[in-house]
Computed example of a mutant assay.
Amino acid sequence: MKKTISLFLLLFIYTLSFSQELLATVQVNSQQLGGSNQQAYKALEKSLKDFINTTSWTGKKLQNFEKVKSNFAIVISEKDGNKYKGTIVVQAVRPVYNTTYESPLINLQDQRFAFEYVENENLIFNERQFSGKNLIDVISFYVYLILGYDADSFQSMGGTQWFSKAQQIAQNSQNRGYEGWAPLNEPKSRMILIGEILNPNMAQLRSTFYTYHRAGLDNLFNQDQSAGKKIIFDALMQLKMYENSFQQNYFFNLFIDNKSSEIFSIFDSNNNGGLVMNDLRQLLMVLSPKNSESKWSKWK
């Protein structure tokens, strides 16, 4: 597989058990605000990094190599006293067995991110109630979302307990005066995303997600790649059941967007083990038409 499909390539030690804590980097960008106080943003960056990496999200104590590598990038666009508005990009990757390649689990941009923050304040997570300032709530929601994605990739439906935590945070945060949580009339809201993930109708996508990673990618780098490719091919073909309903599904479209380059690279060769690539090509042209010319039509 081409190295260019890696979100970032890092050396890692692989573990057969799925990770349940994060090893996160955090960037806070305030360039849009001009000459504002940079010290406050550096303090926010450090506070968030410490908060994400030192909070016990699962109750398990793990070595760094067991944790989920992730990144939180925040771009501040507005400031009014201690109130901020901006965008947050959330990314996470998963190691692939017997390689240095890391597969993208999630890569999303949330443009409805408003919060309050006082420099050097303590950030403490309480899953039972809304924090009152939205910062802890949004970050904690995405932490549990990442943990859920990671667990789902190592065990079938293994992320349900962490997705349920994210859903509880979303429920606590509704009707608190902050955008991004509404279950209706707010496309790509956090509540809509987590509701779709836990919807029984999306069980096949979650099953595909597990098979794609654990039985597919983790066996793709053997000398004979045909078995791994066949598993990934069959798993993706199972998504045909969504071809008439995927358009407005945030969860489904995140999967396709995050995996399109990787999927293309897996099958971008003359050695696909006799797979009927036209079947997968036609399906992905329906599920991801924006990639038809740049990716799917280029398969041999």
Score class of each variant (00 low, 15 high):
Met1Gln: 00
Lys2Asp: 08
Leu7Cys: 04
Tyr14Val: 01
Gln20Glu: 06
Gln27Phe: 06
Gln32Pro: 00
Leu33Lys: 12
Glu45Arg: 12
Leu48Trp: 04
Thr54His: 14
Thr58Leu: 07
Gly59His: 07
Gln63Ser: 13
Ala73Asp: 13
Ser77Glu: 13
Gly81Lys: 13
Asn82Gln: 09
Lys83Pro: 01
Val89Lys: 15
Gln91Leu: 09
Val93Thr: 14
Val93Gln: 15
Val96Thr: 15
Asn98Phe: 04
Asn98Trp: 04
Asn107Gly: 06
Gln109Met: 13
Arg112Ile: 01
Arg112Asp: 07
Arg112Val: 03
Phe113Ser: 01
Val118Ser: 08
Asn122Ser: 11
Leu123Cys: 05
Ile124Gln: 11
Gln129Thr: 07
Ile146Tyr: 02
Leu147Ile: 03
Gly148Val: 01
Ser153Tyr: 09
Gly158Val: 11
Gln174Phe: 04
Gly177Cys: 09
Tyr178Gln: 01
Pro183Cys: 06
Leu184Gln: 15
Arg190Thr: 03
Met191Val: 01
Gly195Lys: 06
Tyr210Arg: 10
Tyr210His: 13
Tyr210Thr: 05
Thr211Glu: 13
Arg214Cys: 11
Leu217Arg: 06
Asp218Leu: 13
Gln223Phe: 07
Gln223Pro: 03
Ala227Leu: 12
Phe233Gly: 00
Glu243Arg: 10
Asn249Trp: 03
Tyr250Arg: 12
Glu262Trp: 12
Ile263Met: 11
Val276Cys: 04
Val276Asn: 15
Met277Gln: 11
Leu287Tyr: 06
Asn291Lys: 13
Ser292Lys: 14
Ser294Val: 08
Trp296Arg: 02
